[in-house]
């Protein structure tokens, strides 16, 4: 235990990209290193095309990096395929997506989709699963009668909360939130942000919060990483970065937000 670092996740010198049709490879991430400590909320900010979503895909395993190392609790995981990785990490990395409507199968009830992770895991008895699903529904602030509703009967904010429930029912150590509030209204956004904060206090998980909105990052995160053209140009505690940005791009971002 003693030689273990406090890092939950560590990315070392990641290169990643998609194979383009004409050129050989489009590098989206270049020499990217990032670490997320236990119970830390890291905000990742950058403009569209800076590689935010690619980074999320690298961590979750939807995309294999070209080179570099990914350590989860000091175990190297970059070579594992998606399904193996999920199993090996005992489902400790979960994700919430930007569009809550496409996060649910339109033909299955919310309850079914809440219970499904536990059914797949085969760790609990039937009654336990059901109880846990109701518990998680309550945790994210939805009434029990949403259990039997279909996704189209819920609003965007309610769906996003249900999606949080779906991801957190597995009690993951790391939650990747890919712009979870950017498609929501102001008051609904506030509600979801409040909920994420509550759940973080209650369940104690680390969070990689991806956003293009500085205000949201400042509100929620402990640490901020600024991504520009595939590499991290600024990294540090939120207050420090916001008060004294070093990088020109960060300065520009913070200035245009009026902070």
């Amino acid at each position: 235990m003693s030689e273990r670092t406090n890092n939950l996740l560590e990315l070392r010198n990641i290169y990643a990209g998609y194979s383009g049709s004409i050129r050989k490879m489009n590098h989206v991430l270049q020499d990217l290193s990032l670490s997320i400590k236990n119970n830390e909320c890291v905000g990742l900010i950058g403009e569209s095309g800076s590689g935010k979503t690619t980074l999320a895909n690298i961590i979750t395993g939807f995309l294999q990096p070209i080179s570099g190392q990914i350590l989860f609790q000091d175990n190297s995981i970059e070579k594992l395929a998606l399904k193996k990785r999920a199993k090996q990490l005992s489902y400790n990395i979960q994700m919430v997506f930007q569009d809550p409507y496409s996060s649910f199968n339109p033909r299955k009830t919310i309850g079914y989709q809440l219970m499904e992770p536990l059914v797949i895991q085969k760790r609990f008895a039937e009654e336990e699963i059901e109880a846990k699903a109701y518990e998680s529904l309550e945790q994210v602030g939805l009434a029990p009668d949403y259990f039997l509703r279909y996704p189209h009967q819920l609003s965007g904010g309610q769906l996003q909360r249900a999606a949080l429930g779906c991801s957190l029912i597995m009690t993951p150590r790391l939650l990747i939130a890919d712009e979870p509030v950017s498609s929501l209204d102001v008051s609904v956004q506030a509600q979801v942000l409040d909920l994420i904060q509550d759940l973080r206090e209650k369940l104690e998980f680390s969070c990689l919060f991806i956003s293009h909105d500085l205000a949201v990052i400042y509100h929620l995160c402990d640490t901020v990483a600024v991504l520009d053209q595939g590499s991290i140009v600024e990294y540090g505690p939120v207050e420090k970065v916001f008060e004294n940005p070093q990088n020109d791009y960060t300065k520009q971002l913070i200035f245009s937000m009026g902070y």
């Binding site: 309610q158 102001v186 008051s187 609904v188 956004q189 509600q191 904060q197 205000a215 400042y218 509100h219």
Partner: peptide, 22 residues
């Protein structure tokens, strides 16, 4: 309440929404 629910520098870490959900 809508203005209050916008995250700003001063409200960091505090609850944002005081009205009931829609």
């Amino acid at each position: 309440l809508l203005l209050e629910s916008i995250p700003t520098k001063e409200k960091r870490g505090q609850k944002l929404l005081r009205m009931k959900g829609r």
